[in-house]
Write a protein that binds this DNA or RNA. Structure first.
Lengths: 343, 343
DNA sequence: TTGTAAGCGTTATCAC
DNA sequence: GTGATAACGCTTACAA
């Protein structure tokens, strides 16, 4: 591969402006000590030569890159694409650029992490998938902070920001039970992901404590198509038996459930069967669905993620400060009948 | 800001392995001439020191960064977030990293472009917003190719990939007319965007040619909430008068229209009123909507965008090859009554 | 305020 | 195949 056409350097600008090369650097550094007239002369020369400073070169000497890596699971789940958007916006506001990676569902993100660590990024956010302890050790050796977003790794003390999935699941469970549901179906998500498991456990324990006639579950694959296919198969018999309520561990699967229940089985929600999801994605809140769910407060979660990265050179949080458990917002919705009393 | 903890360098690895520094570089360069045993020794030393090559430094000498910038409009429009996802995936497959920028709706992207150009990126993709001729000139001076995605800039010869919006709009118009629609409402999008205008024009000319009882239009703001509010206001009178058909220039606004028509006015689609959108986003194809629309073939459009960037050092396309007009896929859907005959 | 000189961590070039 | 040495384009002392 041939190198691209070369760009103008600070030396060329310096020569054209009749100053020294470091002066050019100063002219582009906010707050550097340089006379106004000299700066103007330099900027004019720079414009003439189409010069802009080369971030890679400056980062080499200054040892700061202003870049962060965001490694995300499949962006086809709206929760992750909404999160990615907020990351890009908030990092941009904080004067950082985002190097974006995507990892296929159910694969570990070691490869992406190794790639990211070749860049002198100021930090790495991992929103999905698992990683080996090897890359974690390497990130520590490199001095690059990693924050897990919406994940936790059991048995590690990695910094992480996540919603209180367990309490959120329990909240859904109590709400459905109070609405009269006694038999349940749980549509499970990514078996690797800690979030799915936490939501399921919270839900299960809550309804079991309150009393139930049975809890079944099926693997929904965390995606619309996965859940749709699983539902069609599960209720595919000649006279399918429906539970009182279905809890899908995320909204995109809950939407798939709603579509299957209505289109294929002609059921009304919530009159014939109750339904709830988790995440609070926009699509689930349209009038067509009005999903009962728990919203993950993305803006806040992203903000706390930035805090944990300690990008501005503050102390890197540790101990309790390294794990942020954020309560989700319960949204009653209209796929579970509401009640007068609180739950 | 203090520099981060320093990482191991190739010199330290070289010393530990008892070789010269360039050998370390070779050990990490696929296809470099180095003996297997020496490479193994070096890789072992590297592992011990947590060494990985620094991309910034290597890019400085090799003048290639393997990074591309993607500047996108608001990712809250699913078309753009789906596109961003595909860009990330396809660039990753091509061995490139994506530096992601987001630009607020209705703002030009000069600022983001200037930022991106400070990085020695191999190319820039712009999926939104307008830009000044000044930054275009600068990109040429820097030798960084720019490709517009789903946009064209009138009066410029910037490389661009876009769907045939005009023919797509016309197709929708003919289909609705064939289904019996004679009075129309167009929900317009971003007044800055060329795509919205092209779709609207194609639609308008097609139905005018076929004969109509009137075409009205309103500004939908390109977003769900914008279109929802506009629709509520537009049909807010005591006895609103509805057209035969509504064409929203993108799916996300069409979805908003469907919600307002059904929830607020109790209309059935398509029995009481026809509706169509544009883009073919996943959400519009759920059974709850089954939107009549034109799908933009994102995968193919992204592939052609990569081609135009000529990342592998091939000749940079020019002339006719610089503009790719891709036909959209018409999706009949169920929000316009189907017909036996073609349209 | 300004210029000189010394890095920053790689790859490229060239002998050996 | 391997090692010395010179870039790459910038920032940061340090001196003037």
């Amino acid at each position: 591969m041939p190198p691209r056409k070369s760009r103008a350097t600070s030396f060329q600008v310096a020569r054209l402006a009749g100053v020294s090369q470091p002066s050019v650097s100063r002219a582009f550094t906010p707050g550097a000590s340089i006379s106004k007239e000299k700066r103007d002369k330099i900027l004019a020369a720079a414009k003439e030569l189409n010069y802009v400073p080369n971030v890679f070169a400056s980062s080499l000497s200054s040892a700061r890159s202003n870049m962060v890596a965001v490694i995300s699971g499949s962006l086809s789940n709206p929760f992750y694409s909404e999160s990615m958007q907020v990351f890009i916006e908030q990092f941009q506001d904080a004067g950082r650029q985002v190097l974006a990676f995507s990892v296929e569902a159910n694969r570990d993100c070691d490869e992406a992490l190794m790639l990211a660590m070749r860049y002198p990024v100021d930090g790495i956010v991992v929103t999905s998938a698992s990683m080996s302890s090897e890359v974690v050790r390497m990130s520590e050796g490199l001095g690059i902070p990693i924050v897990m977003y919406n994940r936790r790794v059991v048995g590690s003390n990695l910094a992480n920001v996540r919603c209180d999935h367990e309490e959120g699941g329990a909240r859904i469970g109590r709400f459905m039970h109070a609405a009269g549901a006694r038999s349940f179906l749980i549509v499970r998500g990514d078996p690797q992901g800690s979030s799915s498991g936490d939501r399921e456990r919270g839900f299960r324990e809550a309804v079991e404590r309150l009393g139930t006639r049975g809890i079944e579950d099926l693997a929904g694959g965390s995606s619309y198509s996965g859940a749709r296919n699983a539902m069609i198969r599960y209720f595919g018999g000649p006279a399918p038996h429906f539970p009182d309520a279905i809890f899908a561990v995320n909204d995109i699967m809950a939407i798939a459930c709603a579509d299957v229940l209505r289109e294929i089985h002609g059921l009304r929600i919530p009159e014939d069967i109750m339904l709830a999801g988790f995440d609070g994605i926009r699509e689930g809140q349209r009038p067509a669905y009005g999903l009962t769910t728990v919203r993950q407060p993305i803006e806040r979660m992203v903000r706390e993620t930035l805090e944990l990265l300690a990008l501005d050179g503050g102390p890197i949080p540790n101990g309790d400060r390294k794990a942020r458990l954020i309560p989700g917002d319960f949204i009653p919705g209209k796929t579970v009948p509401g009640l007068a009393a609180g739950t």
